[in-house]
Amino acid sequence: MHCTLVPPYILQALARHQDPVVRDAAIATLGYDKTFAVSRLIGDRDIRAAVVTGRAPRLHRLIHDAQHEEDLPGALVRSEGEAPSTDVAVNEAYDGLGDTWKLYEDVFQRNSIDDAGMDLSGTVHFSQQYDNAYWDGQQMVFGDGDGVLFNRFTISVDVIGHELTHGVTGATADLAYKNQSGALNESISDVFGSLVKQYALGQSAEEADWLIGAGLLAEDVHGVALRSMKAPGTAYDDDRLGGKDPQPAHIRDYLRTTSDNGGVHTNSGIPNHAFYLAAVGLGGNAWEQAGHVWYDALTGGELQPTATFPQFAQLTVATADRLYGAAAKKAVAEAWTGVGIVTS
């Protein structure tokens, strides 16, 4: 039995109050922490978010140094609020995680990876001459590159946004990391990685470079980045990287392979380009309508872990219609048609 001097219907009204202080106090008094009771009662998504997280947005970064070994997380070298390090990789990781957190909080009202204020943990200087960055299920890991083909993997903020977004996908739709669902998982990471950069720079869809990993290729490598969402297949052309950027921009060029979990880093070019076309078609800043459509499709609960390209396409078209109406629906459908995927 929950007793209070204020009648529940007044608390329920206060739980919808615009002032977050009043709202949170009312929710806490209602005693509904960690339940969906309030949201079911009132049907308000913001209240549901407040109830689930049970606290204010929380940014807490922890940057570690593996000191060229492979033990994770390594030595803690910069915590939230501490002064910059003399180590550029440490500061890039710290700032990049901050930029990523800010996009998710400001634009999508997502409170960190798990929407509950989870620590953002990153490790730099992993292993030796390590040409990679990855998400291990708990934290982000960045190599220094070999210095000949690749620079350090913290150099490009969209790489940091890409890795953190793997955490968001894991906490939501959890797209299986194989074949088309795996390529969608990769594409989601590129989409939000690019949005982190665009939002930080204040660039519209027309102004953005839509590159993934700009600055990552060493100086004399023939290429501008690892991937281009605007023009998949054009990011680099260098024998030392195995030749030309192999990403397709259209479903007719889908790569059938058993390598790389079914070409997840290659076939992601198709949904990547669809997002670019949608963002340009919808106009303005990509994190606004296009970003919200993709974010809602990812986190809304309808996207299945084994989703195919057509299933994801259909969901984004329906989401665009629901959020923004017929013109947005048409723009997103045309974007998918542009990569050879027809929706209804």
């Binding site: 040409d131 990679n132 960055a133 990855y134 690749f150 993997f153 790489v159 890409h162 890795e163 990993g213 690892l226 990287l241 195995g242 192999p246 390598s259 790389d260 979990n261 997840v264 880093h265 290659t266």
Partner: peptide, 12 residues
């Protein structure tokens, strides 16, 4: 030995 994948998606 063939290595594929990684962030860069290159094969060696």
């Amino acid at each position: 030995v063939t290595r594929s994948g990684g962030f860069a998606g290159l094969t060696a």
